[in-house]
Amino acid sequence: MSAIELNNLNIAYSSVQVVHGASLTVEEGESFALVGESGSGKSTILKAICGLNDEWTGEIKLYGEKVDPRKRADISRISQMVFQDPYGSLHPRKTVDTTLSEPLTIHGIKDNGDRVVEMLNAVGLDQRYRFRFPHQMSGGQRQRVAIARALMLKPKLMLLDEPTSALDVSVQAEILNLLKQLRKDQNLTFLLVTHDLPVVSFLCDRLAVMKKGKIVEIATRDQLAKGTFNEPYSQELYQASKHEHVA
């Protein structure tokens, strides 16, 4: 069974159409990337899948179940999201402990902090961080907390919206390693949105290249490594990234 299936997805923001007829399938356990420049509609697709935007037509299926935008079922236990900005994605007045316990409280899961401790360990944060406020942590540490929060409900699907683009190179490496490790350990499916092709190469199996709201091409990691895209636009993106990575 595939984890995500999009069929002819159209998304409009107040009458401006930003995604045109996107179709793709992400298999269970796969790590898939949506790649494109700003304004290509990649984040918009992510928001439609998780339910932050209901202004779409077409079909979204999660694990075989059709999603109805008007009658939103709670998919929080199936899918969770990690956001781009580690400074904006944590509530500034809540401690790490409160942030992590919140999803359990919402779903009435009885737990005396064991899962919080376990998740902090899983994302490589020591217990000293448990009762800190976000402003007492660095960007990388905050992003770890955000990842831990996404994992609290044991979802199968993780939606990653540029999870490392606001971080320093060395911190990015740590977070990428962590994501890769977690995916292996917890058997997660990833849908990653990014503009950074090398990140895709490290973390993903396949990628869809988007341009102006359309999916131009779906390619494999192998094609990315060798630079053998079929579409000229994908090739252009590849060259631009390559240009940067001569060193």
Binding site: V169, S170, Q172, A173, E174, L176, N177, K180, L197, P198, V199, S201, F202, L224, A225, K226, G227, Y238, S241, K242, H245, A247
Partner: peptide, 22 residues
């Protein structure tokens, strides 16, 4: 060196990126 190595590449084959020992 740490910075150079920590960057993923287009043809990434490493299973884990080396990180800086801060």
């Amino acid at each position: 060196q740490g910075l150079l190595n920590a960057m993923p590449r287009l043809d990434e084959t490493r299973d884990e990126l080396p990180t800086l020992d801060r």
